[in-house]
Amino acid sequence: MRPGAPVDGTALLALLSRPAPEVAPRLLGGLFGHRGEDGAVVVRITEIEAYGGPAGSDLPDPGAHTWGGRTARNASMFGPPGHVYVYFTYGMHHAVNLVCRPEGAAGGCLVRAGEVVEGVELARARRARGRSSPVPDAGLARGPGNLAKALGIDLGHDGAALAAGDPAAPGFFLVPPEDPQQQPVASGPRTGVSGPGGTSEFPWRWWIPGEPSVSPYRAAVPRRRR
């Protein structure tokens, strides 16, 4: 399905109402986009991670921002589905999650990487800021921070709704693939997640093998005590 195709809003919300580990692999190869005042950028999702809920919930996830319960920062992850959760990390990068599950049951899918299929020039301009050399097209949205920058996403978008029917409208939209089973899928531990949540107990990272836009896997680096 190409940008501009209609989206069944009921079917999309039904999909996003499921637990994130069920949703994430079904979004690989789908389209995720954001249209702002300066134009639209759309990516084909090539890498994605799933995150669950707090300790004591029906899907406890020690690697999730929700592990300690609901806070002002992570409130968007507690629903309703069909919204985005945006956070700021390492003092320099934004990242965007697609919120899953009914309101009150936390979960989301972190969009880690994608191939830019619309708005390449705009994505290049955004990624070129502060750099001395151009970014290869395959790297424009490689990694969650680069993807958010290419799509023009920041904390001001936290909690924004996904448009279910009009990719030409301002804001966010998501178009799942028509048949997720038509493409190969690989899975493994999540990138950079410390503790048990970053082990093989949580193989909640999915990617399309051979895609140059997929980010390299990196295990969490233990923090040194000062």
Rank of each mutant, 00 (worst) to 15 (best):
A125I: 00
A14R: 13
P177R: 01
V84G: 15
H94V: 11
P216M: 12
R26K: 14
G165H: 07
G39L: 10
G104S: 11
P189F: 08
D61Q: 01
H65T: 00
S57I: 06
L15F: 11
P177Y: 00
F172N: 09
E47H: 14
G114D: 12
P212H: 15
E22A: 15
H65D: 00
G104H: 09
T71E: 01
S200V: 12
P177M: 02
L147F: 14
A150N: 08
A169K: 11
W67A: 06
L59H: 14
D8V: 02
P196S: 06
A11V: 05
R142V: 03
R126P: 03
A55E: 12
A148C: 11
V42I: 13
W207D: 09
E201V: 00
L151W: 11
A123I: 09
V175D: 05
H94I: 09
G68R: 15
T199D: 06
G171Y: 05
D179G: 02
R224H: 10
R2K: 10
G195D: 05
I45G: 00
V185H: 12
A123C: 05
L122K: 12
D137G: 09
W206N: 10
R190H: 11
M1S: 10
D61W: 01
Y51A: 01
D158Q: 05
K149Q: 09
G171N: 10
D58K: 09
Y85T: 04
G198L: 00
G79W: 11
R127F: 04
D158S: 12
A186L: 07
T66W: 14
H34Y: 08
Q181L: 15
P196R: 05
S76C: 10
V43D: 07
P180H: 02
H93C: 02
G82R: 03
A141Q: 06
A11W: 03
M77N: 13
A11R: 08
G68K: 12
A168W: 13
G197A: 05
A164K: 01
R101K: 02
G119I: 09
G107W: 02
P25G: 12
G195C: 04
A64C: 14
T71W: 02
E115G: 00
T46E: 07
S187H: 07
R44A: 11
W204T: 02
H83Y: 10
S215D: 05
G119V: 04
E121I: 04
M92E: 03
E121H: 07
P134N: 03
V175L: 08
A186G: 02
A169W: 10
G139W: 02
S17G: 13
A186D: 07
G39R: 10
G63R: 03
R44W: 12
